[in-house]
Design a protein around this nucleic acid. Structure first.
Ligand SMILES: [Zn+2]
Ligand SMILES: [Zn+2]
Ligand SMILES: [Zn+2]
Ligand SMILES: [Zn+2]
Lengths: 172, 172
DNA sequence: ACCCGTTCTGTTATAGAGTAACATCAAGGT
DNA sequence: ACCTTGATGTTACTCTATAACAGAACGGGT
């Protein structure tokens, strides 16, 4: 496969960081995994698995669905990407590489999905996760993973009037 | 289609109630929609669309994917069922038919999904929804719909030891 | 009763998301 | 060299969901 893919300097730096984090944990950010993470970061928006596959094929002829799903599974396990359930899509974790000190805690995140422009914002609000954990505990339920996603309109899109901007596929 | 499907008296009563609620709103709980809602209620667990389709076909030969998806879309709009994103499945709303007074407020619900037995519990915790709404507002984000789901172990399954009970497909 | 717009349903075909199963390959240790 | 482990290649599915268009049924006005 063609290893000479170059992302922006910022992304290459994040990828190097991700690589270090994996190494510290005894896992390996292989070429394919690195490339997929790069594609997710480069997109900056939720990416569908098959959309990633198409772009993956530009550098890795012969890539098939399992190729990208395996890479995504790994990245999810490492906390480097999140899956947005409402969109069946994937985004890079905003926090994993900023606090990159081998902290393998899986942080509980919340996502704000703008219907208008498609942008996804990742929050890390301990209060919300805690409230949910407490509500579960009241019913004797032990939570091991959670999905918290909100759909609506972001600040930027609320500022604009009834716009024809933003991707057409995100309009409704 | 065969209209003479009989569910349990309890479910038939809920279906009649749902029918009234729809009528008050100017929408119609047609035979197919009523049947699908009945199947979801009857199952009492998250039901996949194609699982519903199979059971729908017992009474409605010629039912196809759009048949069940249209019915589900309607029931979702009416707040009579919820979609569990993490399972790509549907459950009947616990609250819609209990407080059946034409209140078309879409309540914000949370779901506890037991990995072990597959049971889903619906919560309606105003605190959690409010906390999420507030967190969004801090970023200028206006929330119009949200998904809050937690996966873990329910009280009953925690009581049992390492069990071989519960549906095999829910084990991991 | 009849007409007509709207809503609902039938039907076919296809797109999109995800996985099973098995072969192959590469790296590292003995 | 041999074996083990983890990663990738490859084929073939399954499951989830929707597009597009045709026909039937309903409901309101005349
Ligand atoms: Zn994150
Ligand atoms: Zn926006
Ligand atoms: Zn509900
Ligand atoms: Zn359980």
């Amino acid at each position: 496969m063609d290893t000479s893919v170059a992302f922006s300097p910022r992304i290459e730096r994040l990828l190097d960081q991700a690589s270090s984090v994996c190494a510290e944990r005894g896992s390996r950010l292989t070429d394919i995994r690195r490339l997929v993470l790069g594609l997710v970061l480069d997109r900056g928006r939720p990416s569908g698995a098959y959309e990633l596959l198409d772009r993956l094929r530009e550098n890795n002829r012969g890539a098939a669905p399992p190729t990208v799903y395996r890479a995504l599974d790994f990245l999810l396990e490492q906390g480097l990407v999140h899956r947005i359930e409402r969109l069946s899509a994937f985004v890079a974790c905003t926090h994993a590489l900023e606090h990159a000190h081998g902290c393998s805690d899986f942080h509980a995140a919340q996502f704000l999905i703008c219907r208008h422009c498609g942008e996804v914002t990742e929050l890390e609000n301990r209060g919300i996760s805690h409230a949910l954990r407490a509500a579960g505990a009241e019913h004797g339920f032990h939570i091991s993973a959670s999905t918290i996603e909100a759909e609506g309109t972001c600040a930027a899109c609320r500022a604009k009037p009834a716009g024809m901007d933003g991707p057409a596929e995100s309009r409704q």
